[in-house]
Simulated scan of single mutants.
Amino acid sequence: MKKLIEYLLMSCLILISFTACGQKIDAELTLDRIIEHAESNSLYRESVDWNSLKEEMYELTINAKSTLDLKPALDLMLKELNDSHGRIFHNSQYLSCYTGEKKEHRTTMNSETYNQIQSGQVYEFKTLILEDSIGYVRIVGLPMGNNEKMAMEIQDAVCKIIDQGAKKWIIDLRYNGGGNMFPMVEGISNIIGDGIVGGTKGVTEDESSVWKIKDGDFYYDDQTVALENKCGLKKNPKIAVLTSVYTASSGEALAVILKNRPKTRFFGSKTMGMITATDWKQIDSLTAMSISVSYYKDRENNLYNKYVDVDENIDFEPNSDLEKDNGINRAIEWLNKKK
């Protein structure tokens, strides 16, 4: 009986050892795959001494038994890359990110406003017609999902106010915290107009891309949503663009698309500065990563690696009534000038 108990105890110890070993091996494999992807694809990969960084990362995870234990090493990697737009996820939750040093123009940010805009629940997409045939379109951040459906909702609302007589435009990106740029751009592509509207620049030519609008449809290289119903609009209408420090990521991409467009002027403040295109890499069944792979560039090939600036600085008060909104009022004043 004693030998049987000893045998069972030994079996349990062996089983526990194998389980822990298996978990450790899984964690190591996950770390290896994350490093491999970053080393091959990161926009900032050439600024890092990978041999030294990997040594530090492996040292930090020497006792890692699960993916969650990789966080210190992943935090270090994103910090060394200086990738404040990079994210690593586990089980659909943030595992690692790097906020970077606080930029001077972000000192006015209000954390409550930031969280409200990022939530997508407080400030909604809005269109209406203002005085003097001015169409107002507030584009907010959008999630991944049915691009055609989301783009159609924007386009239908835009077409409605075109039918009501909108000829000049305010595109309000102040409440746009980022997300999915395809429906944002496609939804207002008939306002923006056809042609090359920008793109991205990566480390190599193969990692760069072209953004264009053709026959009213937005193309990211060969990717497009391509809606069927379009509404007519006067060519190259006058556009006032509103941005804020809360305008981020794909919201900034849309701002870049409007930069250096004829008859277009920017009002508000510098954008947040998450001005990189990011990829998406599934590492294992529960782990994924998204890192910066290229900078945005506008239709004149100007590169944006800090933020998107404005022509006129206007303070942003997110809860102002439309009639008292300084940004909107200044935009209306400019739109109504004859020149």
Rank of each mutant, 00 (worst) to 15 (best):
L130K: 06
L74H: 01
W50P: 00
V48W: 06
I291S: 09
D32R: 14
Y114L: 15
K168F: 04
D32M: 11
T107C: 05
P318W: 08
E312V: 14
D221N: 15
K337R: 12
N176L: 04
L15F: 15
L254C: 05
M57F: 07
H105M: 03
L303N: 07
K214S: 12
T276E: 09
I275R: 05
F125R: 11
D315F: 08
N301S: 13
H85I: 12
N305F: 09
E101T: 12
D156S: 12
N319Q: 10
N326W: 01
I139C: 03
E300M: 12
A166L: 02
A331G: 07
T264S: 00
R330W: 01
N336G: 07
N146C: 02
A255M: 07
A64Q: 07
G199S: 06
I62Y: 11
G100V: 07
I162H: 06
K212V: 06
D217M: 02
Y175H: 10
L70S: 00
W211D: 13
N180D: 11
Y123I: 04
K235Q: 15
C159S: 10
E28V: 10
S111Y: 05
N146L: 06
K71P: 02
K102M: 14
Y136R: 03
D279F: 00
K214A: 13
M181G: 08
T204P: 03
L29D: 13
H105G: 03
K338H: 10
K3Y: 13
L29G: 10
V210Y: 01
I162L: 11
S285L: 12
V310Q: 05
I129P: 01
S294H: 07
R261Q: 09
L254V: 08
F218Y: 09
D222I: 10
K281S: 07
I134N: 03
D279A: 02
I170A: 08
A253L: 15
S17T: 12
R33H: 08
V197N: 05
E56F: 02
S52Y: 13
D221T: 08
E207Y: 05
N302L: 10
G251H: 01
L9E: 14
G268C: 02
L60N: 04
K212Q: 14
V225A: 03
G178E: 03
T278E: 05
N176Q: 10
I213S: 03
I14E: 08
N115G: 05
G268S: 06
L70W: 00
L4V: 12
E207T: 14
V310H: 06
N336A: 08
I213G: 02
L322F: 09
E36V: 05
E205I: 14
K126T: 09
I191S: 02
K338W: 09
I162Y: 04
